[in-house]
Amino acid sequence: QVATSTVRILGMTCQSCVKSIEDRISNLKGIISMKVSLEQGSATVKYVPSVVCLQQVCHQIGDMGFEASIAE
């Protein structure tokens, strides 16, 4: 089973930030795809909930120095 959710990301300033986040999160087990939008300050994450949760994704992004939260 696959889920798609949006994560809000604060602190991104350039495409390099976007690429860094996409590269790191895409390597997590259970992540199918991730598309980060600098303009919208968010990311669309396609993932397998039984393998990885959005809290883990937000935590990983937080470790990179950005502020991440699950969009309502």
Score class of each variant (00 low, 15 high):
Q1C: 15
Q1P: 14
Q1N: 10
Q1S: 10
V2F: 11
V2R: 02
V2K: 04
V2D: 06
V2Q: 07
V2L: 07
V2T: 12
V2P: 07
A3Q: 10
A3V: 12
A3I: 12
A3P: 01
A3Y: 12
T4N: 06
T4M: 10
T4W: 10
S5I: 08
S5Y: 06
S5D: 09
S5N: 09
S5H: 11
S5L: 07
T6E: 11
T6V: 14
T6C: 13
T6G: 06
V7H: 00
V7M: 12
V7E: 02
V7P: 00
R8A: 08
R8P: 05
R8C: 13
R8T: 10
R8F: 13
R8N: 14
R8Q: 10
I9K: 00
I9S: 00
I9D: 03
I9F: 04
I9H: 01
I9W: 04
I9L: 04
L10H: 12
L10A: 10
L10K: 13
G11E: 02
G11A: 03
G11W: 05
G11Q: 04
G11L: 06
G11D: 02
G11K: 05
M12R: 00
M12A: 00
M12G: 00
M12L: 06
T13K: 12
T13G: 03
T13D: 05
T13Y: 15
T13E: 08
C14P: 01
C14Q: 02
C14E: 02
C14H: 04
C14L: 03
Q15R: 08
Q15F: 10
Q15D: 12
Q15P: 09
Q15K: 11
S16V: 13
S16Y: 06
S16R: 12
S16I: 14
C17N: 06
C17R: 02
C17W: 05
C17P: 03
V18M: 05
V18Y: 03
V18C: 03
V18W: 05
V18E: 06
V18R: 05
V18L: 05
V18T: 06
K19Q: 12
K19I: 09
K19R: 14
K19D: 11
K19E: 11
S20C: 06
S20L: 15
S20T: 13
S20R: 15
I21S: 01
I21R: 02
I21Q: 01
I21Y: 03
I21D: 02
E22S: 05
E22Q: 08
D23I: 10
D23H: 14
D23Y: 09
D23E: 12
D23S: 13
D23V: 09
D23P: 01
D23K: 10
R24F: 06
R24I: 06
R24K: 13
R24S: 10
I25K: 00
I25H: 02
I25F: 10
I25L: 07
I25M: 07
S26A: 08
S26L: 10
S26P: 01
S26G: 14
N27P: 10
N27R: 14
N27E: 13
N27G: 14
N27I: 12
L28H: 03
L28T: 06
L28F: 06
L28Q: 06
L28D: 00
L28A: 03
L28C: 04
L28Y: 06
K29R: 13
K29A: 12
K29I: 10
G30M: 06
G30T: 05
G30A: 02
G30I: 07
G30P: 04
I31C: 04
I31W: 03
I31S: 01
I31Q: 00
I31H: 03
I32T: 02
I32P: 00
I32C: 05
I32R: 04
I32M: 07
S33C: 07
S33A: 07
S33Y: 09
M34N: 00
M34C: 11
M34H: 01
M34G: 01
M34F: 15
K35M: 08
K35Y: 07
K35L: 07
V36I: 11
V36E: 00
V36L: 04
V36A: 05
S37H: 11
S37T: 07
S37N: 12
S37R: 08
L38F: 12
L38G: 00
L38D: 00
L38P: 01
L38I: 06
L38C: 05
L38T: 01
L38A: 01
E39M: 11
E39V: 10
E39T: 11
E39Q: 13
E39H: 12
Q40L: 14
Q40V: 06
Q40W: 12
Q40Y: 13
Q40N: 12
G41Q: 14
G41F: 07
S42E: 12
S42P: 04
S42T: 12
A43S: 04
A43N: 03
A43R: 02
A43I: 06
A43Q: 01
T44G: 03
T44I: 15
T44R: 13
T44S: 08
V45C: 05
V45F: 06
V45G: 02
V45R: 01
K46V: 15
K46W: 09
K46P: 04
K46G: 04
K46M: 12
Y47F: 08
Y47D: 01
V48F: 14
P49V: 07
P49T: 08
P49M: 06
P49E: 06
P49G: 04
S50D: 10
S50L: 08
S50G: 10
S50I: 05
V51E: 12
V51H: 05
V51W: 06
V51Y: 06
V52Q: 04
V52F: 04
V52P: 00
C53E: 11
C53S: 15
C53Y: 07
C53N: 14
C53F: 07
C53V: 08
L54K: 02
L54C: 04
L54T: 01
L54S: 02
L54I: 14
L54Y: 03
L54P: 07
Q55M: 12
Q55C: 13
Q55Y: 11
Q55V: 12
Q55P: 06
Q55S: 11
Q55G: 07
Q56L: 09
Q56V: 10
Q56K: 09
Q56T: 13
V57L: 06
V57H: 02
V57F: 03
C58F: 13
C58I: 15
C58Y: 09
C58P: 05
C58D: 04
C58E: 09
C58A: 13
H59M: 15
H59D: 15
H59L: 15
H59C: 06
H59R: 15
Q60Y: 14
Q60I: 15
Q60A: 15
I61E: 02
I61A: 02
I61H: 04
I61F: 04
G62W: 15
G62H: 14
G62N: 15
G62E: 15
G62D: 14
G62R: 15
D63H: 13
D63W: 09
D63S: 14
D63K: 13
D63G: 08
D63P: 03
D63Y: 10
M64D: 01
M64R: 01
M64Y: 03
M64Q: 02
G65T: 03
G65E: 03
G65I: 04
G65N: 03
G65W: 04
F66V: 02
F66T: 02
F66H: 01
F66L: 02
F66D: 02
F66R: 03
E67P: 10
E67G: 08
E67D: 10
E67M: 12
A68N: 03
A68H: 03
A68L: 05
A68D: 03
A68W: 08
A68Y: 05
S69K: 08
S69I: 11
S69L: 08
I70T: 07
I70P: 09
I70D: 05
I70L: 10
I70A: 08
A71C: 11
A71F: 11
A71N: 13
A71G: 11
E72N: 10
E72V: 11
E72F: 10
E72Y: 09
E72A: 11
E72L: 09
